[in-house]
Amino acid sequence: MKHGISQRKLGRMPAHRIALLRNLVSALLHHETIKTTLPKAKEAARMAEKIITLGKKGTNPAKSKAEAYLMPPHNSPTPSSSSLASSSTSLDPEEFIAPKTLLPKLFNELSSRYNSRSGGYTRIHKFGRRQGDNAPNAIVTLVDGPRDLKFELLARTVGKESLDLLQQKGSLEEISEDWDGLREKTKQKVEKVLKFKTDDEKNQFKQKAREFADYLQAEEAAYGGIKSPNVGVDTPKYRKPGMNTPKSGKLLRAGERLSGVSTHTTGLGLARGALARTPRGKQLIDKTPRFWGQARLPEGVAAQVV
C-alpha cells in the first residue's frame, strides 16, 4: 500500500521539509509574494491556503495552530521602552524591523480581505528556469493584495489592447465597465481579477491601463524611431552604426523585445529559428523588433519603415 504520499518530499528529510514549508509560508504571508521553485511553490501555496483558513475562523484553537506553525518564533521578547531609552544607540526610522508575529496580520488584515472568498487565496506564476540545474522557477503571490502580479500584468494587457480602438475610432475613449474592444479571453481574465475588488481598486486598474497605453504611444516618439544603418542588404540591421549612419533613434539589438511587441522577437525566439512553432494561419513570422505603432502597421509598410 502507498502510504505517506500526501505531499511532495522535495528531496529532504521530514524535519527539514517541515521547516522549509514553515519558512516559505511565513515569508509568503509577510511579503505577499515569493520566488522559489515550482514544486516548493505548489506545496507552500497549499499550506498557505490552510493557514489563511485558520485566520478566517478566528477561534482560539485556530490561533494556537497558526502560532505553532508560523515562523519566526512568536515568543521572542520585544524591547521595552525603558531599555530603548537607556540604550546609547537610537533606532533609525528608515530601518526595516521584521515583525515578531504574523498573527495580527493573519487574523485581522488577511481574514477581512478574504472574507467573501471561499478559497483560492494564492496564485502561482511560472517564471522561467533556474540557472545551474534548470529547475522551473515560480512566483507565488497572495491575490487581491498590493503585490498581486496578475493585477499589474493584466492592466498592461488591457492598455495594449485598448490602443486598437484608437486606430478604429481615432480617439482613446474611457474604458467602459463592459470592457468593449478587448478579446474574449482578456475579458474573462479581467472579470476574474476584479471580481472581489472595490470601486477604488477598479479605478486604479483602469488608471494603470491608461498609463501603459500612453507609455506605448510615447515610447516611439521619445526614441525617435529605430536606428537602422545604411549598409548593404546582407549586413545585419542590429550591427552598431558607424560614423556615416544617423545618430537619432534607438539602436536595434538582436533579440530585443520592445514594449507591447510579441515574444517571437525575443532571444529564445530568434535562437529557435525555423524550428520555432508557427502560429496557426501564418506561414512566416517577421521577428524584427519594432515599436508598438510599427508592429500594428501592415507587413509591407512595416518592412519599409524598418
Rank of each mutant, 00 (worst) to 15 (best):
W292D: 11
K247D: 07
A41H: 11
E191Q: 14
V190W: 01
G128C: 00
I139G: 08
A295H: 07
G273T: 06
L149D: 00
S162T: 02
K208M: 10
L165M: 08
Y223Q: 02
W292G: 04
E161I: 06
R46K: 03
Y114L: 06
E220L: 09
M243N: 14
Q188H: 12
E32P: 01
S6V: 11
G281R: 02
P241Q: 05
A254T: 07
T89Y: 14
E32L: 01
G119F: 09
Y223S: 00
L154S: 01
Y238K: 12
F212D: 00
G224E: 09
D286H: 03
Y69H: 04
S83L: 11
R239F: 13
K56E: 00
K247E: 10
A209T: 03
S87I: 09
E220N: 09
Y223H: 02
D214F: 11
S171G: 13
R253I: 09
K56W: 00
K187V: 08
L54D: 01
E161M: 04
S118C: 02
T278K: 00
S111Y: 06
D144H: 05
G269W: 03
P298E: 04
P246T: 13
N115F: 08
A85N: 04
L10T: 07
A19Y: 14
S87Q: 14
R117L: 04
L165I: 10
L252P: 09
D286R: 05
L10R: 07
R272E: 03
A62Q: 12
A135Y: 05
S83M: 14
R183E: 14
E191F: 13
M13P: 15
Y215P: 06
G242V: 15
S81D: 03
R156S: 05
R272G: 01
A135C: 07
K206L: 12
I285S: 04
P14W: 09
N203P: 09
R290V: 10
R257H: 02
L91Y: 11
A66R: 10
A62W: 06
T288N: 09
P136A: 03
A66Q: 05
G224K: 07
A274P: 05
S88E: 12
K197C: 13
S228I: 15
P229F: 12
L103T: 03
L275R: 08
P93L: 11
F205D: 06
G120W: 01
H30P: 00
E67P: 08
A222C: 05
H125V: 04
N137F: 10
F205K: 07
G159I: 00
L182G: 05
L297G: 02
K100P: 14
T101P: 07
P246Y: 07
T278D: 00
P73G: 15
S228Y: 11
F151D: 01
R156F: 03
S262K: 06
L251G: 12
A27P: 01
E173F: 15
A221V: 10
E32W: 00
E191H: 15
S228C: 15
P73S: 13
K35Q: 07
I226W: 02
G11H: 13
K250F: 07
R147I: 02
K282A: 04
P77Q: 06
G267W: 10
E152I: 02
R147S: 10
K126R: 03
S248G: 11
K169V: 15
A302P: 09
E67Y: 12
L284S: 08
T263R: 08
L70E: 14
L142K: 08
P236M: 14
T53P: 00
G120Q: 01
A98L: 15
S111L: 03
V233K: 13
E177S: 08
R130D: 00
T141F: 02
R129L: 05
S228G: 11
